[in-house]
């Protein structure tokens, strides 16, 4: 009985998604605020990189030439594949195991791979802390607006009345927010060790 209701009311086959983005969506909003505060606190504390890393990076680079390092050779290529998988986990969170948080963490590990794979000094826009910060702020703003819209219009449902659209939309935005936030923390923790 309960299963049928979860599907009918939220349009998600995955009941866990139905709970955390359907019935308890405001709880999820509060959770993303906690994540936002933790990311800001971490960034404030470690600034742009762990303070000892600059000296370590110069010594490290002298020992290992970047082009010969197997980590950089493999991680840079693997990063894009992991990003695609993260997008899949985000977008199909209502049909299969997965969702915004899980997909976001996969995206963050993809960003971490890309950051590790950048050869020496080159930085791509994907792992640039400034653009990640902007992405996270934009995703959080969209999430707030979506939640406010939900408050105005208590009945669940996307533009065409299919309630599953709402869950897919929230999953993707949530995934972007979590991926950008945790990826930002990881990139900041690597610091300038690899760049």
């Amino acid at each position: 009985m309960a299963k049928a209701r979860a599907y009918l009311e939220t349009g998600a086959i995955n009941v866990v998604s139905a709970i955390y983005l359907g019935y308890r969506a405001f709880d999820t909003l509060g959770e993303t605020i906690v994540l936002l505060i933790a990311v800001s606190g971490t960034l404030t504390m470690i600034g742009d990189g762990y303070l000892g890393s600059k000296r370590f990076a110069t010594e490290f680079r002298r020992l290992h030439s970047p082009a010969e390092d197997p980590l950089e050779l493999i991680a840079g290529k693997l990063g894009l594949i992991v990003l695609v998988f993260g997008a899949y986990v985000m977008a199909f969170g209502h049909l299969s195991p997965g969702g915004g948080f899980q997909g976001g963490v996969v995206v963050a590990s993809g960003l971490l791979f890309l950051a590790l794979g950048e050869k020496g000094f080159k930085t791509s826009r994907l792992t640039d802390p400034t653009s990640l910060q902007k992405l996270e702020a934009a995703a959080f703003l969209i999430l707030l607006l979506a939640m406010a819209a939900g408050m105005m219009r208590p009945k669940a449902g996307g533009p065409s009345g299919n309630p599953a659209e709402y869950i897919v939309f929230l999953n993707v935005i949530l995934g972007l927010k979590v991926g950008a936030g945790i990826g930002l923390m990881c990139v900041a923790m690597i610091g300038d060790l690899y760049r």
């Binding site: 906690v34 933790a38 606190g41 971490t42 979590v178």
Partner: peptide, 11 residues
Amino acid sequence: VIGVCVTALAL
């Protein structure tokens, strides 16, 4: 998620 936040802040 809260556990990840706490770990990151502690680190």
